[in-house]
Design a protein around this nucleic acid. Structure first.
Lengths: 287, 287
DNA sequence: TAGATTGTTAATCGATTAACAATC
DNA sequence: TAGATTGTTAATCGATTAACAATC
């Protein structure tokens, strides 16, 4: 069946369900799907203030997108607006909720109850919007038996039973990176078909399983990239010198030559790398 | 100075720094920038195993992308590979680190030391890779003075002093949604130009400030969307009936008519919505 | 030299945007 | 009817991908 690709932020085998680009089945583009929760949040806020209708312009501002994009997005759902008037808030809340599958109940397991698992278990937006924490799981006997967010932490051994008996199809992984793939395999084997991964690892899953990942470290690195550009806002330095300190570059070039070796048809992977200059490199690297 | 747009996952005013599409300054596309941390992580693992060189095919597999994409990505950085051989691991680690700005130190403040703030403060990947927690801040007097990850939690009042004196340019917001915009404003006013937002709110920032957001609830909703499609995998139902229960649709249509009103040139926003049918709608909605 | 693998080209695909006709 | 605002079109832009010439 293969849903469209698991989204830009998802990681998987080198490109699995690459078959259907748009997330098909009434053909809503992935980019649109990713924005629907944003619209829904803005609409919910309007609903709570009992605002009856809203224009694309107003709603777009509230959601932080431009109105053309919003109207295009909504056009994939159907014609739910009224020309000259706008959109009925309650009706749209319902339509988007239904489209996202939030009119049904989604039991979720959280595996790995460390700091982050705790935080997620307590997260309010979890319980609302159709998601229900079916169980908290951990491998550490010291953690098992304690409670988090009013729920008992249960042992990993119960994973399969819980997934099957409670019909869990969504799993959240908040384990250390080393345990993530194993936990993932067990979840998938037991029947989970959607995984939200907080561990900084690439997960490999079979076709038909969606993985999305949340990665603090990656987000920070992307910010650092832009931040760096802001600081030195020269015309856009492209001299050789500003690309790497001279000595480092020289050492690296040497390294490459050494690695390249020569005659061997064997990929240089097996050529013993000239160790030494690397210390220079790692000296400028963060631990 | 307007960096390229803050990325798909960033939220801001309806489209601020829309000027430069690719993240300019040697023109690395946003999509490529977002993948560099992935490559870096895979390369670091290889480096720790003392693997000297790696082919695009191998590295792509480790990073969870396809090799064509990886080679294209690397081509924006320069020609760092060797035909017939592959890439020198150490050299590439250095080049990507430098490109991402990780060869310098980035002091970061975390505002809002609840469960999530705690989790982040303790996050290992934080301290490594050039990021350093400069301070933990909270508004709650009961939290201020406690320690998290070995650091004292300081009061919000100190925000400006800390940002200025420690040259903090990156702020992480883990406050409740209601406080996020205010905290954001203070951070920006004090000189922060990059924000990582964990609060489920759209933040408005001036031009030149980047915002990225991490939103558990949105990720889950995207998974639910795909999950829903998997369950009922009919040819792709598009009868009117499967789009909404009859009564709901009827009630909604009525609502829309009522809202549309008629003569008034005023947007129907001000027309008193016919309350009543909405209860039907909210009944099927998650709280 | 023969084999391997990069770096680049060009085709394709998906997403964004402005503009405006349709229509409430 | 006049004004407002949607839904859609078409142009543009950015990202992905396969293929292959360059070259180690």
């Amino acid at each position: 069946m293969a849903i469209g690709r698991p989204s830009p932020s998802s990681s998987q085998t080198p490109d699995p369900g690459a078959a259907r680009r748009t997330s098909r089945a009434r053909g809503i583009p992935e980019a649109t799907v990713a924005r629907l929760p944003l619209y829904l949040r803005a609409l919910t806020a309007l609903s709570e203030r009992s605002v009856p209708t809203v224009s694309s312009e107003e709603l777009a501002a509230a959601a932080g997108v431009n109105s053309a994009k919003l109207r295009k997005d909504f056009s994939y759902l159907g014609s739910y607006g009224t020309r000259g008037v706008g959109y009925d808030v309650e009706y749209l809340v319902y339509q988007i909720s239904r489209e996202l599958g939030l009119t049904q109940d989604w039991p979720v397991v959280i595996v790995g109850i460390g700091n982050l698992g705790h935080a997620l278990a307590n997260y309010g937006g979890f319980a609302s919007r159709g998601f229900r924490v079916a169980a908290l799981l951990d491998a550490d006997p010291n953690v098992v038996g304690s409670t988090a967010a009013g729920l008992p932490v249960r042992h990993m051994d119960e994973l399969e039973d819980i997934v099957v008996s409670q019909h869990v199809s969504i799993g959240v992984i908040t384990t250390p990176p080393g345990a993530a793939q194993l936990v993932c395999d067990r979840l998938v084997e037991a029947g989970v078909t959607s995984i939200l991964n907080f561990a900084p690892t690439v997960l490999t899953v079979p076709d038909g399983v969606d993985v999305r990942k949340v990665d603090l470290s990656i987000e920070l690195q992307i910010l650092a990239f832009h931040e760096q550009r802001k600081a030195g806002d020269e015309p856009a330095g492209d001299s050789v010198l500003d690309r790497a300190p001279g000595p480092v570059r020289a050492a690296a070039a040497k390294l490459r030559r050494a690695a390249g070796g020569g005659k061997s048809a064997e990929p240089a992977k097996n050529a013993p790398a000239a160790k030494g200059p690397e210390d220079d490199l790692s000296a400028v690297m963060p631990a």
